[in-house]
Design a protein around this nucleic acid. Sequence first.
DNA 1: AAGTTGTTTTTTATGGATAAAGTTCATGCT
DNA 2: AGCATGAACTTTATCCATAAAAAACAACTT
Lengths: 298, 298
Amino acid sequence: MRTDTVYKKAFNRTAAMLRDGQLTGELPSENELRRRIGVSRTTVRKVLGELAQRELVAERGGVRTAGRAVEDSDYYPDAETTSRANHVEQQFMEWMLRGDTRPGTSINELELARQFGVATNGIREFLIRFSRFGLLEKRPNTGWLFKGFTEDFALELFEIRVMFELRSAHLFSRQPDTSPLWDKLAALKVAHIELLKRIESRYQDFSGLDNRFHRLINEASPNRFIDDFYDIISFIFHYHYQWNKHDEQQRNQAAILEHLAYIDALESRDPDRIELACRAHLASARSTLMRSLIGSDE
Amino acid sequence: MRTDTVYKKAFNRTAAMLRDGQLTGELPSENELRRRIGVSRTTVRKVLGELAQRELVAERGGVRTAGRAVEDSDYYPDAETTSRANHVEQQFMEWMLRGDTRPGTSINELELARQFGVATNGIREFLIRFSRFGLLEKRPNTGWLFKGFTEDFALELFEIRVMFELRSAHLFSRQPDTSPLWDKLAALKVAHIELLKRIESRYQDFSGLDNRFHRLINEASPNRFIDDFYDIISFIFHYHYQWNKHDEQQRNQAAILEHLAYIDALESRDPDRIELACRAHLASARSTLMRSLIGSDE
DNA sequence: AAGTTGTTTTTTATGGATAAAGTTCATGCT
DNA sequence: AGCATGAACTTTATCCATAAAAAACAACTT
């Protein structure tokens, strides 16, 4: 059966809005809520129905108002708000990055399905999607070959990344002065400086900033293949660092400084400076990844 | 039910071997056949069973020999030798490239499933696989957005292609003189010259040559992401030109000449010459594609 | 006419079943 | 021991069923 995670997540969001006082007095129309929550009206109605049932909203003569106060126990547990597909993704990444899965291992859909508690269909869909990341290969009628999260992988990944980033950075710097992206860049610079001040407590915010920064650079000259490639990078980094916290604060601090140098270089519009700063940053990102690869290899 | 296309294709191949006299006297062991046909022994046994049934091979005391002559009617029809997944691919590409599918159209799994006569699952798997080609986008719980085989697509595709090819060409040219790839390049050069001589009748052979040539250039400095990207190119071109035969001979002849210039440039190891020849060739490939895009757009 | 809510229809996400194909185990033969 | 064949077992490819979610339709209200 299809999971009702969409509904549960929508319910939780709506409950949170009630609690935070974002829904005061008469509730907005179903359509308005639909827009705010980003879900179909069908689901909104289901949410409203349940909220009324639990007296979290009161219905009188077709008018809905907030009801009793929302309690912690009203929320659905987080685990019930992620779709099966998401679960598979997380479990697979954990299996891959944490387990002692060696390069060359062959992957068995049925076994993973049993292990993750889902139907084989879901596993297969995930593997097909994941295969564009260059870590898997399908052998028809036979199964999947796990190629390994290896040093080679990291080298090849970064070779492309450098090419793409240099290209995008140069195109960025050649934008007209009137481009709104310059303002965005300035805003990001401020955000970096702010984060640097509070680095001790907030160093984990860096990852979001990193993403925004690199995507901004691509925005000046969009290319779907480059965007797709950056998806791979984000994905890999997201999971890899989720289980690799070693030296995180220090790493992030260094990266912020590199970003700032890179931003200054962009603002100077000097091609040589840009290339230098860009290469320096990526080289350091690469060696961080490589180090952790080797480290986790013992 | 799973199709038995693997068996039928194996049967046809074995029958062809019998007919061509590649299997003379006592037949090889099941394992040996397995190796030659590239299929499991289970399937080989099924093939042998059917061959015996039809008296195409004779079994006497555990020894198998060729039986009566193979006739045309013994083969399974071609249509029965492609898997469902392949069918879906072909039908989808036809639907996309031939039909009047406009950019921005949304794709409906169920409708395609009905139209192609397969289960929705097969459609979905295809779409997931295909989405890495940059022509589709999945919107969860909703469907797929067809972004269109547009001019933008071609431009973005070629921007990357140029970056990758220049990089690979330069690395190719910097290989040691002792690398076996130089010999392969020389062989390809000969093949080009040969083809040029018979261009009137054999111009359709160019596509295979083109593929071999560009893959050879990547071989000197393998990178899985570049290889994957080249898969996209091959795929797109394969289908696109399958339905776009306009001026084919002339186009191919021009491309052969460009390849020859490009090969000479590589052999000269002169970076500037290489860059020039490479760019010239890709520019012409791009404008061919663009022209046909606009042409098919009436 | 435009926006509401109620209802019906369609489509997606997910599990399950099964024949075909692949793999492993068992037995026998040089 | 090493290779053949036979048989049993496992996994993949494929279809089908169904609840959840989305979309379309309908009726009502201001």
